[in-house]
Simulated assay, not measured.
Amino acid sequence: MSDGTGGWAGIGYGDWTDLAGIRARLDAGADPDAEVWAYQRPLHVAAEEGSPEVVAELARRVADVDAEHEGRSALWNAVYHGRPDNARVLVAAGADPWRPMMRGWSPGRLSLLGPEPELFGDPGRDPGLTVEEAVVVAVAPQARRVFDGFLLDGLGLACVAGVDAGEAVRRLGGAPAAVDLDGLDPFGDEALEIVGVTEVPGGCVIAQPWGYAPQRTDLMKRLSRGTVAYGLYANPKSGNQGCVFRDGEAESWGLNPGGGHPFPDEPSLEILTGYLTRDGAVAHCCAFVGLHPSDTRPVEGPPDLWIRLPAER
């Protein structure tokens, strides 16, 4: 087809479960190896969104069932997005679950740490975790349960490992503040000076339900001295903006926790955390640094204490 879409014009989310419709497109000349949504190939999209029948149909028509898009195979998509049914179909079609990709996270290696470690028939295989990765594996399930379905537009957050609330306040240089939330204008300058600080198992959380201040560079540098901190601003216009600071320096910037599709140049720990927390941005931030809060209070409030931040410097 020469419509510029490879024959996939007008296809929607629900269409990837319609075997007759997909087969009709293919029989009419749609290119199974074309780039469609977000420039992904049809098999990649179907592995995440489609039915096993559609995945099987596309798998038998593509040139290479292990072809990669941005470092990921269709099988990787199926595993990462919790579609073991589609993963089994892809393996039956010849996909390799142990093919290295995404900073060493093959589909098989990821699956060993998910809900179905026996997916590819080797549940006892050693995933070869670092100490930090093992911590994330241990705390991510609870973080995901606590923040399941949590809505966060406009939220600013900093999760800090191994630092209690008192030490966080000292590092921030803030002063305790009496806050009248009913009288506080969330769009005013004063609101950006106020953050909540709450101690949780593993460290502490600095939260601002209405703004970006917790992930300010000057604050993240101070909070992360001798440890690691994950900052998040859930920008209502452009989406989640994440960063990692370690020992006072920026380690990663421009991250998208809860964003759905990691990039191949993201750190290994970021990819693993995204898999274990799926689309949960707050759970991602907590788990990455080893925090395991028992409820949503550190983010929703009331915090252990409100403080007024010093001027940015």
Results as ranks from 00 to 15, higher is better:
residue 192 L to F: 14
residue 190 E to L: 07
residue 117 P to W: 09
residue 135 V to T: 11
residue 183 G to N: 15
residue 172 L to A: 06
residue 229 A to K: 04
residue 188 G to T: 08
residue 127 P to Y: 13
residue 223 L to W: 01
residue 100 P to F: 03
residue 118 E to N: 04
residue 206 I to G: 07
residue 127 P to F: 10
residue 207 A to H: 06
residue 198 T to I: 10
residue 103 R to G: 14
residue 145 R to H: 03
residue 164 D to G: 13
residue 196 G to H: 13
residue 229 A to Q: 03
residue 127 P to V: 09
residue 240 N to K: 03
residue 210 W to K: 02
residue 204 C to M: 00
residue 109 R to T: 09
residue 115 P to G: 11
residue 220 M to V: 08
residue 137 V to Y: 11
residue 165 A to R: 12
residue 165 A to W: 04
residue 221 K to P: 00
residue 220 M to F: 09
residue 116 E to C: 02
residue 145 R to L: 07
residue 214 P to F: 09
residue 144 R to T: 05
residue 133 E to M: 12
residue 155 L to M: 05
residue 184 L to K: 12
residue 209 P to K: 05
residue 113 L to G: 12
residue 204 C to S: 03
residue 203 G to S: 06
residue 131 V to I: 04
residue 196 G to M: 11
residue 234 A to C: 15
residue 217 T to P: 04
residue 227 T to D: 05
residue 156 G to H: 03
residue 152 L to R: 08
residue 147 F to A: 01
residue 237 K to D: 13
residue 234 A to T: 10
residue 234 A to Q: 09
residue 196 G to R: 08
residue 191 A to E: 12
residue 182 D to E: 15
residue 213 A to D: 02
residue 199 E to Y: 02
residue 124 G to W: 14
residue 107 P to D: 05
residue 196 G to T: 08
residue 172 L to P: 06
residue 192 L to D: 15
residue 217 T to V: 13
residue 215 Q to D: 03
residue 217 T to W: 10
residue 204 C to Y: 00
residue 237 K to T: 11
residue 170 R to C: 10
residue 137 V to T: 13
residue 168 A to N: 06
residue 101 M to T: 08
residue 181 L to C: 01
residue 120 F to T: 00
residue 176 P to A: 01
residue 123 P to S: 15
residue 202 G to M: 02
residue 212 Y to T: 08
residue 238 S to W: 08
residue 199 E to P: 04
residue 208 Q to W: 08
residue 126 D to F: 11
residue 205 V to K: 11
residue 103 R to M: 15
residue 147 F to C: 01
residue 223 L to E: 00
residue 185 D to C: 09
residue 235 N to T: 02
residue 234 A to P: 08
residue 164 D to H: 13
residue 100 P to M: 04
residue 146 V to K: 05
residue 113 L to A: 11
residue 177 A to V: 04
residue 213 A to R: 15
residue 215 Q to L: 11
residue 128 G to Q: 15
